[in-house]
Structures are given as structure tokens and as C-alpha cells.
Write a protein that binds this DNA or RNA. Structure first.
Length: 452
RNA sequence: GUGGAUGUAGCUCAGUAGGUUAGAGCACUAGAUUGUGGUUCUAGGGGUCGCCGGUUCAAAUCCGGUCUUCCACCCCA
């Protein structure tokens, strides 16, 4: 033990208690996905850099983990570049693979590659880890799991509505209070067009995304810093200033868009989604939030984000519609929409709010104490019979001190311990100890089985 | 990528005007109790004080660097 072993920055081990809880999250998410008719797929941890680069904006490219080529990779670098190395120039020579950054882009790649085997609209879900070389902090890891659901090959807004229902179902099953925020990139595009700053679309949306965090004055300051004109800023703030309920806000915005085609389209989409939702009586709050932007560049229509109530951890689920993600891979005009659940953040929220059910801890239901060679042989068939009846059972593998065996059962939360020694074997009964009450009873195996 | 804080036993943490052999609780092992755990008592094992270097007769303690974790920014699940 000269050096203590460790794991890379921003990664974590998951011990049994944590895994039981994580599986609880994955299982409920999975069962909701299946309830709506989605099917699972998996894609490799690494993708070619060419499929990853340029899909997440400049910031995203920086956060990609790149994998060094195998073999003598340095010999492939042209000589002049080695003499005077610049990271940006030599990476393309020494790395051609990277760890996936999300599940949506690999999915688009998958769809293009398997287009002839897929029946559209294609509804799939995918639960796998992704990697980002971000600086870790609360709720932010370098390796984390995403749970994606997407429908691809359908422009219908029913898909947006369905995804919102799925979000609602998942979080209500997990007992998490949350707000589902929706917006539409076309609305944002409309605003930017209305104020005459089309070419600054990205910086403007990024700025207004921060509105509730840094306030209107700081947003204005940031906008003028990136070169948005004073007049445009004034127009923008009059749009953002509006206070009213969701429906009033939609009507108010509509007025600005009388001559802005894309904005009108966006507003109509929002209206339609909201009207469908009206009849569904969801338990979660759904909000139209003009300041919701989302950083990923490939979104073109609806955008969705979910924040947990009373826990400050960023969004626990997010997504949107992408009209042409498959286009970059050579299959144009296939629109898709999807959301991604952040399992690790959901875990953190549930831990903080104490939402994990108690019983999720239980593994072994009955343990046989091991008193020695003779007893082992005598007990083994009993464990087998219990398992055949669907009861989790184990026989302690060593004839260890009783104290150690009881301690093991106690730490593992095993509710029943069976003691079988000379007396029991002679009398043909089993001594069963209830580990919660401490009480002991003589029973037959059938009686034990009938207890469960 | 920028700024700030942090790091002592498996875990949570004490320990500075630099000075013998670095402590506690929990956990672990053994015994009190040779067939009874979760309560109690006793004893024991376990640390090159994150790592590297510097100052000093002497460094867990002071200085520099580096890494980790945490927090804010950027961005995001």
C-alpha cells in the first residue's frame, strides 16, 4: 500500500446501498418508458470524433473526452507540427475517437446508419453513462447517467405532449415535486428577428436564459457587451417585462409576432401543446417560460426543462425538438423530439428529500447459520427449496463464530435467521429467529415459506 | 477554462507563538458470553498528517508547486 488507489476526478464508485437505490430510479424510469411503447437500444461508449465534434457548440467541443489512438500514434504527426506543437493542430493526428457527450447525437447517428431497419416513427429509450470533462461541483460529475426517450420521424406535437406526460409520470412515481418548463426555439428566434438582431441569436438566448438568476439589469449589460443595439435591448426588455399568467403571456407575445412568421409559428405550437395538456390533469406544474433557452445548438422547436422544487441542483431533466440532427449524417428531413432524465441528480434530490422507500434495502430474506460440516449439508437443501419458492435465501459459507454470523445478518438487514444444530436435526424442526423483534420460534420449512 | 476554500486512522473530525512516542468517536478484531446480533464493559490492530520540494538543529504546523474534493463563474444532466 505504498500509494493509495484512487479514481479519476469527477467519477464515483457505487456501493450496494447506492446501487439498490439507483436501480430503483432506473427501474421506475424504464417501466414508464415501456408503458408508452418505447424500446431500448444501446450504443458504444466511444464514438468517432467526427460524429461528436461540432454538435454541441464551441463549449461542448472543449468538454469532449478524447481517446488517444492505439499504437505508435506520435509517428503519424507531421514533422513540422512536432517541432512546434499546438494542441488544436495535433489532436486530429493523435485522436480519432471520443467518449460520448450525450445520448442524442449517438442516437441520430444510429438512426441514419440503421434507417432501413427502422419503422418510423421510431420510439426508443436509452439508459447509459455519458462523459464530460467539466469541472465537478454539486450535482455535476464527469461521468453520469442519462436516461433518454426520443421519438424520431414524426413532426406531430402529440409527441411533445406525450413526453410531458412521461416526465409527469416518472416524477410522480418517484414522489419528486417539480416544475416542467416549456418554451420554443421558434419563439426565441421570433423575438430576435423582431428586435433585428438575428445574427446574435445564440448570445441573446444565453443571456436571457440567466434572467431569473442575475436579474434584468445584468442581462441588459451582458447584451450590450456582446454588441446588441440599445434600441433592440429596450424592445427586448419590454417583451420580457410582461407579468401575467401563462395564457395571458402567450397572447401578449402573439401581438409582437404579427409580421414575424417564425415567432407566430412558435407561439402556435406552444398554444397547441398547452391546450392538449389542459385536458390531462397532470399532477406536475407546467409553465411557459420565455427565458428558457438551453445551450445545445441542435434544438429547433419545443424545449423542455424540469427543475426540482426546494432543491437547488439545476435541471433534473431536459430536452427538446431537433428538426435536422440526422441531416448532418446524411439523412435530411427527419424530425425528432426527446428528453433526458439526469439519474445522478435525481438521486441527489431524492437523497436530500429522503424519498427512497425503506424496503428497497432488503436483499436476503432468510439466512441459515452455519454450525459445521454436518449442519451445512443438512441445511443446503432448505435454501434450495426456499429459492424455488421465490424467497431470497443464503447459507453462511463458514462455520464462523455465531456472533460474527448474527452480525453479518444484522448488517445486511436480513429479517429472518434460521438456526439448525443437533437439537433441530434430531427433533426435525427449524429454529427461526425474527431479527427485528428478537423472538424465536420452532417451525417447519413449509411454515416459513407460508410466511412470505 | 477563471477565481476561492479544503485534504490528519476505513469514516466523521480534534491537534499552530514549529519541539519527545500525533489523538477522539464510529467501524474493525479479540475477550467478558464454547448455540444468539442490534445495548454495555475491557483489550488490540490500523496513520511516511494528500503528494513533491524548500526554510530550520527540528515541520502535521511556515513557504512554493502539484493533485483531490467542495463552492462561485462559464456552461450543463
Amino acid at each position: 500500500m505504498a500509494q493509495k488507489p484512487s479514481i479519476p476526478k469527477g467519477t464515483r464508485d457505487f456501493s450496494p446501498t447506492e446501487m439498490v437505490r439507483r436501480n430503483y430510479i432506473f427501474d421506475t424510469i424504464k417501466s414508464v418508458f415501456q408503458l408508452y411503447g418505447y424500446l431500448p437500444i444501446e450504443t458504444p461508449a466511444m464514438e468517432n470524433l467526427s460524429t461528436l465534434l461540432g454538435k454541441y457548440g464551441e463549449e461542448g467541443d472543449k468538454l469532449l473526452f478524447k481517446i488517444l489512438n492505439s499504437g505508435d500514434y506520435i509517428s503519424k504527426v507531421p514533422n513540422p507540427k512536432i517541432q512546434n506543437p499546438k494542441t488544436s493542430e495535433i489532436t486530429s493526428f493523435i485522436s480519432e475517437k471520443g467518449l460520448r457527450f450525450d445520448l442524442t447525437v449517438p442516437f441520430a447517428r444510429y438512426v441514419v446508419q440503421h434507417r432501413n431497419d427502422i419503422t418510423f416513427p421510431f420510439k426508443r429509450y436509452q439508459i447509459q453513462p455519458v462523459w464530460r470533462s467539466d469541472r465537478p461541483q454539486k450535482g455535476r460529475y464527469r461521468e453520469f447517467f442519462q436516461c433518454d426517450v426520443d421519438v424520431i420521424g414524426s413532426k406531430s406535437l402529440l409527441n411533445e405532449v406525450e413526453l410531458i406526460q412521461i416526465i409527469n409520470d416518472v416524477f410522480s412515481r418517484l414522489s419528486i415535486n417539480c416544475t416542467i418548463k416549456i418554451n420554443n426555439r421558434k419563439v426565441l428566434a421570433g423575438i430576435v428577428e423582431y428586435i433585428g438582431e438575428i445574427e446574435k441569436f445564440t448570445s441573446i438566448t444565453v443571456a436571457i436564459d440567466k434572467l431569473d438568476k442575475i436579474g434584468i439589469d445584468n442581462v441588459k449589460q451582458e447584451l450590450s457587451l456582446v454588441g446588441v443595439s440599445e434600441k433592440a435591448i429596450r424592445q427586448l426588455s419590454s417583451i420580457l417585462d410582461f407579468e401575467g399568467d401563462m395564457n395571458e403571456n402567450v397572447v401578449y407575445l402573439g401581438k409582437f409576432f404579427e409580421s414575424v412568421e417564425i415567432g407566430k409559428e412558435g407561439i402556435n405550437e406552444v398554444k397547441k401543446v398547452l391546450s392538449y395538456l389542459d385536458g390531462l390533469n397532470l399532477s406536475s406544474k407546467v409553465e411557459f417560460d420565455l427565458t428558457l433557452a438551453r445551450g445545445l445548438n441542435y434544438y429547433t422547436g419545443a424545449i423542455i426543462e424540469v427543475v426540482a422544487s426546494d432543491v437547488q441542483i439545476g435541471s433534473i431533466c431536459g430536452g427538446g425538438r431537433y428538426d435536422d440532427l440526422t441531416g448532418i449524417f446524411g439523412l435530411p428531413d427527419v424530425s425528432g423530439v426527446g428528453v433526458s432524465f439526469g439519474a445522478d441528480r435525481i438521486y441527489d434530490v431524492m437523497l436530500e428529500k429522503n424519498l427512497f422507500p425503506e424496503g428497497a434495502q432488503e436483499t436476503t430474506q432468510v439466512m441459515f447459520v452455519n454450525f459445521g460440516e454436518k449442519e451445512q449439508k443438512y441445511c443446503l437443501p432448505f435454501t434450495h427449496q426456499l429459492r424455488s419458492s421465490g424467497i431470497n435465501a443464503e447459507l453462511f459459507p463458514e462455520p464462523a463464530k455465531l456472533k460474527k454470523q448474527m452480525n453479518y445478518a444484522n448488517n445486511k438487514n436480513i429479517p429472518f435467521v434460521v438456526l439448525v444444530g443437533d437439537n433441530e436435526m434430531k427433533g426435525n424442526y427449524l429454529t427461526v429467529k425474527n431479527m427485528n423483534s428478537g423472538e424465536q420460534k420452532q417451525m417447519s420449512l413449509e411454515e416459513i415459506i407460508s410466511q412470505f
